[in-house]
Amino acid sequence: MKHILLLLFFSFSIAFSGDLKDLNIGDAVPSFALKNYDGKDYNIQKVMKENKFTVVMFISTQCPVSNAYNERMEKLYETFSKKSVAFIGINANKAEDTVAIAKHAKEHGFLFPVLKDFRNKVADQYAAQVTPEAFVVNAQGKLLYHGRIDDNRNPAKVTSSDLSDALTKLLEGKEITSSAPKAFGCSIKRIE
C-alpha cells in the first residue's frame, strides 16, 4: 500500500512539474488576439494569412538569455520580413508589464511587435516554457518549427543557426520534419 501511495505521489509530482500539452510539428496552432505594447491589436490568424510564414517568439525584458538574442532577433526580422515572414514577440512573464515591454522594445530598436500575454494564456496554449523560444507557422496556421533560435547564447560561438536555416528552407519550399533541438533559457514566470 505504501508503495502504491508513493507511486501515486510521484505520478502527481511529475504531472505537477508543468507538463503542458506540447504542440507537435504539423499541428494547427491555437488562435489568439493580443495587444502590442503600443495598444495596437494583433490577431494571429490575420497575421498568418497575410504572410507566407509567421515566427512567434516568446521573449523577456529581464532574462539574460533572451536579451542575448535581441540583436539576433532584430537581424532575423531585417532579413526575413521582406520575404513575407512576419515576426511576433510575446511576453508572458507575470512581472513584466506593458511599460517595461515598450521601454525594452524601443531601447533595442525592435521593429516587430511585442504582445503582452496577460495571465500567460497564449504561453499555456503553445506550451511555451522558456525565453527565448520560437515557433514558425505557415499561412494555414500549421506548426512547422518549434525550438531554439540557434545553438549558443554567445553569438561568437554559434555553430548552428537553426531558426534562420529553417526559414530559408521553408522559403525554398523545403519541408522541416522535426522539432529543433532545445536550448537553455529562463523559465517563463507564470501566474500561479
Binding site: 522558456v130 532545445k182 537553455f184 533559457g185 529562463c186
Partner: peptide
C-alpha cells in the same frame, strides 16, 4: 537537456 529528462524544456 534530452539526457536529463526528455520532457525538460531547458528552462532554468
Amino acid at each position: 537537456i534530452e539526457k536529463m529528462n526528455s520532457k525538460w524544456s531547458g528552462a532554468l
